[in-house]
Each structure stands twice: as structure tokens, then as C-alpha cells.
Amino acid sequence: MRKLTGAIVLILLLGACKSNSSKTALPIYGNRQAVTTTVNGQSVTDTVYQTIPAFKYVNQYGDSTGSKNLDGKIYVADFFFTSCPSICPIMQRNMLNIYNAYKDNADFKIISFTIDPKHDSVPVLKNYADKLGVTGNSWWFLRGNRDSVYRIASNSYLVGVSQDSTAAGGYVHQGYFVLIDKQKRVRGSYDGTDMKQVSQLIDDIKTLQAEPVNAK
């Protein structure tokens, strides 16, 4: 009898573990608003989530690249600069794992925004990508107007960046990898210097890919 109870407890535990691991959905970050519209004479209330606003920058190939190229794509964003001596190498080493896991997936991209557009010209970014071993169009290194990049970093991707002459390399920035879904909503933020969190991100991308397109 005791054995039987033990077995039942074990089964229950296993069941509990299983239902925990099969995650239903990732959270949606940012502000949200209830918006009431009239559809076919009936008023319908919907939740509108914060999304990444439109932007247009230039990638490492010199092509004009922006939010339009990310329509319907899942992507991971980070903020870096090529001459960064502090956390960037470890971030990009971890980002390479994500790149290698998903580079052949047409609906997935990685976007690295430079926060030092003065130094990081298009040829500098191309050279950096080449040396990192990044080819093709699954990982873009984007260069934009400094103020505009800083604004979307803190307001939209919720990542703090700033210029600081006392910091190593001249800039301070947080090492977050931000996961964006096909509807341009923030679905996760991970410490890009922590291998464990990056593994979680690799798993979460799969969860997001399996999500139905109209999921709220």
C-alpha cells in the first residue's frame, strides 16, 4: 500500500512537472490600453499593447533597413558598439549561439543597434560582422541617428543606454537581449551576459514561433 501511495505521489509529481514545463504563453511587456471601437454597429473593447515604433536605419551592407523589414518576424534586439571593451564580447558570444540556432529560419532575425554611430560606420560594422562570422541577412547591425537610437532603446526596448566619458569605451549600456514578436510587442528581456538566461531565450523563441498569429 505504501508503495502504491509512493507511486501515486510520484506520478502526480511528474504530472505537475510536465504541466509546468509546457508553458502556455510568454508575457507581453510595456503599457497597454483598452480601446473601444465600433464594429458593425456594436462597440467592441480590445486591448492595445505597446509596440516598437517605426524606424529606418542602415545595416552593415549599407542597405536602408528598418521596422518594415521586420514585419511579421520574430527578432532579438540588443545595443552595442564595436569598440566596446566591457560586456559586448560576452554578449555577442552568447548572441552567436542564438544566431547559430536560428540563422536558417526565414522568419527570425537578430538586430544589433550600435550606440556609437560616430565610430561605427557601415564599413566598420561590415568588418565586425565578417570577423564575428556573420553572413547573410539573419543578423543585422544597424546604424542610425544617435538620439533616435537612444530614444527607442529606452522608450521602446526598455534598455538603458547613455554616453559617459568616465566609462570604459565611453558608453554605458545594459546588456539585455530583447525578444520581439511578430506584432512588434516586447515578449521578454534577458541578461545577454548570462548563459542561462540566453538558453531560456533560445527556448522562448520556440514557444513564440508556436504561438498562433492572432494570439492576444
Binding site: P85, S86, I87, P89, I90, Q92, R93, L96, Y128, D130, K131, L132, G133, T193
Partner: peptide, 16 residues
């Protein structure tokens, strides 16, 4: 050293 050169001294591609 580790941030750039790696926990296992592996460096980073052709950058480090």
C-alpha cells in the same frame, strides 16, 4: 580578461 577572451580561453571568432 574573461569577458573578452572567454571562460575557456576560446576568444571570439576572428575578433578576439
Amino acid at each position: 580578461c574573461q569577458n573578452c577572451h572567454g571562460e575557456k580561453g576560446e576568444g571570439l571568432s576572428s575578433l578576439i
